[in-house]
């Protein structure tokens, strides 16, 4: 018998796309928002985001080092978490608070549950809530970049019967977190992600659509609601996180509508001006149930299990 060859079970070819490619696509999709943040809020934006990314990567490395798990920095998911968290913070955020937020996101929300793919809550969203709650007294006010003075976000201003123009909202020239103000940049990123098939349209459209519909039903201005606050950032980048959102199309739609409903309920009736983070976190918790409800019947297997 001649030399033995390698045998392995089929399939013998794999698609070229790896986890790191998907994460890289998300990073690319976030770049317009990052650029917009630098233009609107100045170079400190880049510093805040960089600190978050560095802290997230360091937390991941250190945790895996201490627990002797394989290093997963190469999959770039920590970079995505850091970027998302950084972009959902105000530009004058004390850096030490940003560092704590990143560590919470990576260590508590992600790694303690088993690392990538095993976390039930979105790390960036949860860390943002932690920061909001923990540092509510000392956290800086959202700055209005146009006049440079501490001022309310459009949603807070709405409460005070002041409004920003649609164009201002669309381009992001108003107060808010770094990455959430410029709807144009976020939409660009979203289109990129859909075109690259990293995400599907279901969650963002269901989220934004239901939010618009409900704001109209609650007697609010739908367009103003869509363009302000963290809705775009949340709907396109955070509610579409793989680990914490359903995987079937119908599940995604239910998830998106649920997010829209909770967001608008908080905005309309809650004491917080913004409800995106809470909405996503609450729906994250429901995700396993939604997955179970919407599990598809196997082809030809509808008879009995």
């Amino acid at each position: 018998m001649s030399e033995l060859l390698t045998v392995s079970p089929s399939p013998h070819i794999r698609s070229a796309r790896r986890t790191s490619h998907i994460m890289l696509d998300v990073i690319i999709a976030l770049i317009p928002a990052l650029v917009a943040a630098c233009v609107i809020f100045g170079p400190r934006s880049l510093l805040v985001v960089s600190v978050c990314v560095a802290a997230a990567m360091l937390s991941e490395w250190a945790f895996e080092r201490i627990t002797r798990r394989p290093n997963t920095l190469g999959d770039l998911s920590a970079v995505v978490t850091g970027m998302l968290l950084g972009l959902s913070l105000p530009f004058n955020m004390p850096l030490w608070q940003a560092v704590i937020g990143s560590a919470v996101a990576i260590i508590i929300v992600k790694q303690l549950f088993g690392g990538i793919g095993k976390n039930f809550a979105n790390p960036a969203v949860t860390a943002r809530i932690v920061i909001l709650v923990a540092f509510s007294n000392s956290a800086p006010q959202w700055i209005n970049p146009v006049d440079g003075v501490a001022g309310a976000t459009p949603l807070e201003r709405l409460g005070a019967n002041q409004t920003a123009s649609y164009l201002q909202l669309f381009l992001g020239e108003h107060g808010g977190s770094l990455g959430e103000t410029c709807a144009l940049a976020l939409l660009l990123g979203g289109v990129y992600l859909v075109v690259r098939r990293v995400i599907t349209w279901h969650v963002p459209i269901a989220y934004l659509g239901s939010a618009a519909l409900l704001s109209w039903a609650f007697g609010m201005d739908p367009l103003y609601q869509l363009l302000s606050g963290g809705l775009m950032l949340g709907a396109i980048f955070m509610a579409t996180d793989y680990s914490t959102s359903p995987c079937n199309p119908w599940g995604k739609i239910i998830f998106g509508v649920g997010c829209g409903l909770i967001t608008m309920l908080i905005r309309a009736f809650g004491s917080y001006p913004e409800g995106v983070s809470f909405a996503i976190l609450l729906m994250n918790i429901l995700c396993p149930y939604i997955d179970r409800w919407t599990a598809r019947k196997p082809f030809g297997g509808a008879v009995k299990a």
């Binding site: 018998m1 033995l4 060859l5 390698t6 045998v7 089929s10 399939p11 013998h12 070819i13």
Partner: peptide, 19 residues
């Protein structure tokens, strides 16, 4: 060759030997 298959790469079966 590192691997020789009967059939295509998706469902083909790897053979042990060129015999």
């Amino acid at each position: 060759p590192a691997k020789v298959l009967y059939g295509g790469p998706m469902m083909g079966i790897a053979v042990v030997s060129l015999d």
